[in-house]
Computed example of a mutant assay.
Amino acid sequence: MSKTGAELRLQGLGKRYGAVQAVKPLDLAIKGGTLTTLLGPSGCGKTTLLRMIAGLEQATEGRIFIGGRDVTLLSAGERNVSMVFQSYALFPHMSVLDNVAYGLVSSGLRKREAHARAEAALETVGLKGFGTRLPSEMSGGQQQRVAVARALVLEPDVLLFDEPLSNLDTRLRRTMREEIRALQQRLGLTVVYVTHDQSEALAVSDMIVVMRNAEIAQAGTPHELYARPDNVFVATFMGEANHVRGRIERIDGPMADVTLDALRLTLPQRGLAAGPVDLVIRPEAIRISDAGGGIAATVARETYMGSHTEYHLATPLGELFCVAPDRLRRRQAGEAVSVTFDPEGVVAVHP
């Protein structure tokens, strides 16, 4: 089970239901052995796209290539992909071992060999010795691992996850996403992972594809999307972000001089013209100091979070949300302060 997964290529792939365009034609190349997350709000097309890759939905247009082979017209069973569903979909009357072996047995493999491979798959996901239990005797996290083992045992070219952690509590979600990522890297699997949780996407992905209104808003590495979002939607979807208006005063090669109220910053120009500009400021890039210098602000409210304090600041740019470690002192509501920004946390974006 340690082969490297296949490359997945989508070419002009689209899906419509009557007059409704569920996925607008798009191109996407996913390298073998990497984990790519489809991220976006409900109804953006990410699950439909995943189901087209799986062969559970027929594409209206375009082609799907897995390992260079055109699988567009092949059934789900002929594509050599496996899918892990949100509901796990385990058979309650079957033992864990029989659940994992089910796909192999139904494809004609002898039961003894199927069980041996199922045992190996259970060991891979850390469930050695659990084969005789029923799903009802397992915790949610263990059931999730059984579902992963059942998909892995088929040795798929591409492994698909549809919101796999949404039924788990917060702490278990963190553990499970780390386990899925470690497993993917250890086995060299090609994984496509659907979620609407940006922290989950940042934690597990080699590449994130942010979807909006049935199309790709931006694709890139987690760092690229967080540090250099193309537009306001991507910036605000990839974590907390303050959206303000500034002005590009002057362009000097790849850099631009930008004014924000009383502050002047030099930022990457990113193909934008001089004049009014949309800016995204990350909460951790906002520096609060005593009044005088920078932009005048007032603490509207403050929330103590243990390791840090969250502030909402009233400023001439509008309300700003910021996060401060407060090792020295906490600010109080109504206090007059000054605000400056770390330039690397401020990005000029398209509206």
Rank of each mutant, 00 (worst) to 15 (best):
P229I: 06
S87Q: 14
L134D: 00
N167Q: 03
Q218C: 03
A336S: 14
G62R: 03
A217C: 09
G318M: 09
L267I: 05
P276Q: 12
T190S: 02
M238F: 05
V244K: 00
A89S: 14
C44D: 09
P135I: 09
S205N: 09
V258K: 00
E123D: 14
D290M: 08
L39K: 09
K24E: 13
L56Q: 13
M138S: 01
G253R: 13
Y304S: 12
T34R: 02
R270T: 06
S307H: 10
G108W: 09
V100C: 03
K128T: 14
Q269R: 15
T298A: 15
E57F: 12
R51E: 14
L202I: 15
R174F: 14
L320A: 04
L13F: 01
L159W: 01
G239A: 11
L73E: 08
E7W: 09
V125F: 02
S42F: 10
S75M: 10
N242M: 00
A296N: 03
L109N: 08
F237P: 00
T259R: 07
V146F: 01
C44G: 08
A114P: 09
N231D: 04
R186D: 14
V258T: 01
K31W: 07
E215A: 10
Y17W: 11
R112F: 05
T303F: 11
T259Q: 08
F321T: 14
D169G: 11
R51F: 13
D169Q: 10
D70E: 10
V258A: 01
V81G: 03
V71N: 12
G253M: 13
A203S: 06
T175Y: 12
P325M: 08
S199K: 13
K111A: 08
R117M: 09
V96H: 02
E335F: 07
V96L: 10
A54K: 01
R264E: 05
R327G: 15
I281K: 05
N167T: 01
T266Y: 11
S75A: 15
P254H: 03
R245W: 02
D70G: 11
E344A: 15
K15C: 11
R287S: 10
R112L: 05
T315E: 06
V280L: 07
G12P: 05
I64Y: 11
D169P: 05
V146I: 01
T48F: 04
R177P: 11
F161P: 02
A22G: 04
K46P: 03
G275N: 02
T175L: 07
P343L: 14
A59C: 09
R110N: 15
E249I: 12
T195R: 01
G318F: 00
E119S: 10
R173P: 03
F237M: 02
A333T: 09
E249Q: 14
P229N: 00
L8N: 00
A59D: 02
